[in-house]
């Protein structure tokens, strides 16, 4: 589609700039790597729905046609952590389930984000009792907290839009360059260069 890339990254430091014109197969766009990566990331946030109680029902409403998370590129709920970008913890997290929650988070590839949906995921909610974790931020880092019991789908979409804004401000190139070099396995590849 001609000119499809223009308009990404409204909040980024360097906005994409059109140079020339898209032809049938040719044409080009000048932009920064950060902008183009962030643009791709923020418009394809695939959620891993960790539906633990009634909030999961509200998440289903968010994903269904009336509220339609597909408008933000986030309709592809993935039930494998390897394919997901966003862990959406929707509901009451017990300590026993916390183990699974943490393991799923550990299995997600970077970049990864977490939204705590509803009062229970954010703070334990009304359950100040022996099996319930008082907020998932005790075991995983949380990007956005959504209050409500359960929250309206609009609030989930609002969190999603805010998450898009946060992704826009990230610097993926710098993060990649700062990443420590992988440690070679002992004996493998030694002296290859």
């Amino acid at each position: 589609m001609a000119g499809g890339i223009a308009g990404g990254g409204t909040g980024s430091r360097i906005t994409p700039v059109h140079v020339g014109e898209f032809q049938e197969e040719g044409g080009f766009v000048l932009t920064s790597v950060d902008s183009i990566i962030n643009w791709a990331r923020k418009n394809s946030i695939w959620p891993l729905p960790l539906g633990l109680s009634c909030c999961a029902i509200e998440f289903m409403a968010t994903a269904a046609s009336r509220f339609d998370m597909a408008r933000f590129g986030a309709e592809v709920a993935r039930f494998s952590p390897r394919q997901a970008d966003l862990m959406l913890v929707a509901g009451t997290l017990t300590y026993k389930m916390g183990e699974a929650c943490r393991r799923l988070y550990d299995q997600m590839a970077e970049p990864r984000w977490v939204i705590a949906m509803g009062a229970c995921a954010a703070s334990g909610g009304m359950f100040r009792s022996y099996p319930v974790m008082q907020g998932i931020d005790h075991i995983v880092p949380v990007d956005f907290y959504i209050p409500g019991c359960p929250p309206r789908p609009e609030m989930v979409i609002n969190a999603l839009i805010q998450l898009q804004g946060k992704i826009e401000k990230e610097s993926p190139v710098r993060q990649i360059l700062r990443r420590p070099a992988p440690v070679a396995a002992a004996g493998a590849g030694a002296g290859a260069e």
Binding site: R102, P131, I139
Partner: peptide, 21 residues
């Protein structure tokens, strides 16, 4: 048994992360 349990959240978090690994 106390309603809010016997372990603190910090202890539970350590327990959860240990088991997840």
């Amino acid at each position: 048994f106390p309603m809010e349990g016997e372990r603190s959240d910090r202890e539970w978090a350590r327990w959860v992360i240990e088991r997840a690994r």
